[in-house]
Amino acid sequence: MSDKTTSIEQIVGALADGMTIGIGGWATRRKPMALVRAIARSALRDLTVVSYGGPDVGILAAAGKLRRLVFGFVSLDHIPLDPHFRAARQAGLPVWELDEGMLHWGLRAAAMRLPFLPTRAGLGTDIARQPEFRTITSPYDDAEALLAMPAIHLDAALLHVHRADRAGNTLTLSPDPFFDALMARAARQVFVTTEQLVDTAALDMQANARCNLFERALVTGVALAPYGAHPTSAAPDYQLDLPYLKTYAAAAADPASWHAYRSRFIDVSSEDYLCAVGGASSVHAQPVPAY
C-alpha cells in the first residue's frame, strides 16, 4: 500500500500559480484552515478558488491570492458577511457567482466527466446572464429550455477530515458531509488534512462506513493537522470559535489591523497558531453553536 502521508508545506509545494482549487466544508464548518493559512503565507498567486465560502475565502482574498472566485455565497454564519470578502469584491475581485445547487451540479458534471448537467436553477436571474452559460432545449416532447451548467474541473481539492490512515482512507465524522465528495471527484489531485492519523484498523470502517465519503484511490496526499479546521468547526471533535471569528472579522478594519492579524495568526507555525488562539483547551471549550 502506498504511503500518502505528507505535510501541509509539501501540499502547498505541490500546488502551482494559476490553479483552480476547490476548498471543502461549508461557511464556518470543516474548512481546511491550516492549509488555507499555509497558502496565504506562500508565494502562490492567481488562484481560482471554488468554495461554499467562509473564512477560507476571506483569508485568501485578504492575502491577495485570488484571481477569481467561483462561489454561491461567502458567510461566517453568525457574522453574516465576511468583511475581507466584501472588501475584495468591492475592489473588483472577478467572480463567477452561482446558485449553491449549480455549484453542486458543476462539480457533479466534472465528477461524471460530462460537459454539463441540465438544471432550471439560474433561469430567469442575473446568474444566467454571466457569459459562461448556455441554455439547452430538452430533446424530449416537453422541449423545455434548461440551463446547461458546465462542469467545474478542479486542479486540486483541499479537504479536512477527522480521521485518516496512511493510504488515504478517511472518516468525516461531522453530521453533514457537505459536498467534499463531489470536490474530490471533480479534482485531478485531492489533498486531505486530518485531525488524527491512525492505523487502518483504528478507523473501525465497518462501524463508520457512512462517514467514508470517497475512495482512497482519489487521495493524493494526507497531512496530519490537529485543529486544522480552526476557527471553523470539526464537530464532534470541536466547535467553531466565535470569539476568534470576531477577531478575524475585526482584522478587516484597516491595513494595520490585517498586518497585525497576519503576523500573529498566519505567518506562524501550527504550534504557535494553536498557542495564539488560546491552546487546545480553549478550542475544546467552545460551546455547541446555536444556528
Partner: peptide, 30 residues
C-alpha cells in the same frame, strides 16, 4: 417578485457586496 441578496450597484465592482445568491435562483424556480 425578483429579489436580490448579492450586491448593491454594479456586479463587477459593487457598491456593497453582500452574501451572494445562495440558493435563491434554484429555490425560485423549484
Amino acid at each position: 417578485g425578483q429579489c436580490n441578496i448579492s450586491v448593491i450597484g454594479d456586479h463587477a465592482r459593487p457598491r456593497a457586496a453582500m452574501l451572494g445568491a445562495r440558493g435563491l435562483p434554484g429555490n425560485s424556480v423549484s
